[in-house]
Computed example of a mutant assay.
Amino acid sequence: MSRETDEVREAIAGELRLMDPRVRSSRSLARQLLDPDFVEVGASGRRWTYDEMLAALPELDGAAESGARYEPSDFTGVLLAPGLVHLTYETTWEGNRARRSSLWRKQGADAGWQMYYHQATPVPPDSV
Rank of each mutant, 00 (worst) to 15 (best):
G108V: 10
P36I: 00
A43V: 12
D37I: 05
V128T: 14
G14P: 08
L87N: 05
E7T: 11
V23A: 10
S66C: 06
W93E: 07
E94G: 10
F75P: 03
S102D: 01
M19V: 00
V128R: 15
E7H: 07
T92Q: 10
D51L: 11
P82D: 13
L33D: 04
A64N: 03
R46E: 11
L29M: 01
A13H: 12
M19K: 11
A43C: 03
F38V: 07
A98Q: 14
A111P: 02
E7M: 04
A109W: 04
L84T: 09
R22Q: 00
V8I: 03
S102E: 00
W104K: 02
E65H: 04
G77I: 02
P72E: 15
L60P: 10
V85E: 00
P122D: 02
R97N: 04
V8P: 15
G45M: 09
E15F: 10
V8L: 02
L33W: 10
A56G: 03
R47H: 06
A13D: 08
T92R: 15
P124T: 02
R100S: 00
D6W: 03
R99H: 10
S25I: 03
G108T: 12
G83N: 00
V39C: 11
R100H: 00
Y116D: 03
R97T: 15
A111Y: 08
Q107G: 02
L34M: 06
R24W: 09
G77R: 01
A111K: 02
L80A: 05
D6A: 05
S25E: 04
E65R: 04
Y89L: 14
L79Q: 15
G83M: 10
M53F: 05
L57S: 04
Y89S: 12
V85S: 02
Y116S: 14
S127L: 13
H118Y: 07
D35L: 05
V123Y: 04
T92M: 13
I12V: 13
L29V: 05
R31C: 07
S28W: 03
P72L: 14
E40I: 13
A11R: 03
A111M: 06
W104H: 03
A63H: 01
A64K: 14
R47T: 12
M19L: 11
Q107K: 11
R27V: 04
Y70N: 12
T88S: 01
R22Y: 13
F38N: 12
Q119L: 07
E90C: 13
A98M: 08
